[in-house]
Design a binder for these strands. Structure first.
Length: 436
DNA sequence: GTATGCGGGTCGC
DNA sequence: GCGACCCGCATAC
């Protein structure tokens, strides 16, 4: 749609700025919650939107004091990666979610890479003129206005839900007997389509990855037209109904994540379905090819700038299970953690959407911006059976960043201080090993 | 223990 | 003045 196609009222809906004294109130249609807002996006959510109420984002955003009680400001913490840039199978990388709490983050940085025991490094976000991308939230009238400034210049971290899942697994891990019981007895312990090999050899990874596959539950997309869950985890209940192929893989698997709680949550009333016309429906065609040519790794790919291409990666190397398609819209849980070497989307790479200038462009085109990008964020997820670690990784073209080794976009030796390396044990599961 | 929000305060531009 | 950021505190889960 061209800007000219908007009538003056529509333009009003697009030209506001979070700092405006008066924000539009004649909003005809509120946006569907965006889990991964990026690129100077602006959204108007209903004040009823629970995700918006909670100012959620799958990016690791911390509160920033802007001395303005009317506008909540948050800045991106970036992503935690392996200091050794290790890769698991097929170039997948580890992208952890930085702890939001300063204290917890410092603690987190003393941990080691779950895969190679190397040091963990925090890749700071500098997508906004060298500073972290900032998100602004403002409640006004019946709406919640959201504005993002900057383009994330780093991979997507695991989602909040995944991080929570890991914590849950840590607990579970500390009570192995409990886990084994659930593996045997819970519905989620059933063998799932297409997943066989790895689980047998690495039993513990199974529940773990299940946890990671937890739908980015609170993913707004999923919640779009459905009653909002009471909590982030409630979103789990939606994973099932959102599927295209009807697989209950994810929902069922979540049951083993946190034996006690998650299973129950997975059974929360759901039944929410989305109309076929829902633009946020996951795309079954969302597949991508593995890509190892680091030379062609570029910001575009790295940033995974939302483009239509994100929904379609025809050379996806893994057998796509239905779940892989089903939960793409939320970029759910299967996302970060281990991501794959970036792939140049098959279509013209748009650093940002056509109507949208890049960071270097005139920000004030921004005022007429409609964040179509966000509407194209759906992505695909790799098959879990590939590798017990693959859980999350690779999902998204958008996040097919890699830490390109020597030519890494992030110069670890520069200003990203390697965190101390505690001698971590050899447990293969991220923070499954009791983090010290 | 961690996430989140608030607000005082500092610092650099 | 503005924006980024540090810190402490309170609250919730």
């Amino acid at each position: 749609m061209e800007p000219d196609d908007f009538d003056s009222e529509d333009k009003d809906m697009l030209s506001w700025d979070i700092n405006d004294v008066k924000l539009p109130q004649n909003v005809k249609k509120t946006d569907v919650f965006q889990e991964w807002p990026d690129s100077y996006a602006k959204h108007i959510y209903s004040c009823e939107d629970k995700n918006a109420q909670r100012h959620l984002s799958s990016w690791a955003m911390r509160n920033t004091n802007n001395h303005n009680s009317r506008i909540l400001k948050k800045s991106c913490l970036g992503v935690v990666v392996c200091g050794h840039d290790c890769s698991v199978e097929e170039g997948r990388k580890i992208y952890l979610r930085p702890a939001i709490c300063d204290k917890a983050r410092q603690k987190q940085q003393r941990k080691c890479c779950p895969h190679c025991d190397g040091p963990l490094k925090l890749i700071p976000c500098r997508g906004h003129g060298g500073f972290p991308v900032t998100n602004f939230w403002r409640h006004d009238g019946r709406f919640i206005f959201f504005q993002s400034k900057g383009e994330h210049d780093h991979p997507k971290p695991e989602t909040k839900l995944e991080a929570e899942a890991r914590r849950a697994m840590k607990k579970a891990h500390s009570a192995p007997s409990s886990i084994s019981l659930h593996l045997k007895g819970s519905p989620g312990a059933k063998s799932l389509p297409g997943e066989t090999q790895s689980q047998g050899s690495l039993p513990l990874t199974w529940p773990f990855q299940e946890g990671l596959q937890l739908p980015s539950s609170y993913s707004g997309h999923l919640m779009a037209n459905a009653p909002q869950p009471k909590s982030l985890n409630d979103g789990l209940s939606l994973s099932k109904s959102y599927g295209l192929g009807g697989t209950t893989y994810l929902a069922d698997q979540t049951s083993t994540l946190d034996p006690a709680k998650l299973y129950e949550k997975s059974k929360l009333p759901s039944g929410k379905t989305y109309g076929s016309g829902d633009p946020f429906q996951p795309s079954a065609s969302g597949v991508y090819a593995e890509y190892n040519d680091l030379q062609t790794w570029n910001k575009n790919a790295a940033l995974g700038k939302n483009s239509l291409s994100e929904n379609c990666y025809p050379n996806y190397p893994f057998p796509l299970t239905s779940w892989a398609c089903n939960f793409s819209p939320s970029q759910n849980a299967s996302e970060p953690f281990f991501q794959q070497i970036p792939l140049e989307p098959p279509t013209t790479k748009t650093g940002c959407h056509p109507l949208w200038p890049g960071p270097g462009g005139s920000l004030y085109e921004e005022k007429a911006h409609v964040d179509f990008n966000s509407y194209m964020q759906s992505s695909m997820y790799p098959s879990p059976q590939e590798d017990p670690f693959l859980l999350t990784y690779g999902s998204h073209p958008h996040q097919q960043y890699s830490l390109p080794g020597k030519i890494s976009k992030w110069d670890f030796d520069e200003d990203v201080t390697p965190v101390g390396v505690d001698h971590c044990n050899n447990e293969m599961f991220l923070n499954l090993c009791p983090l010290r």
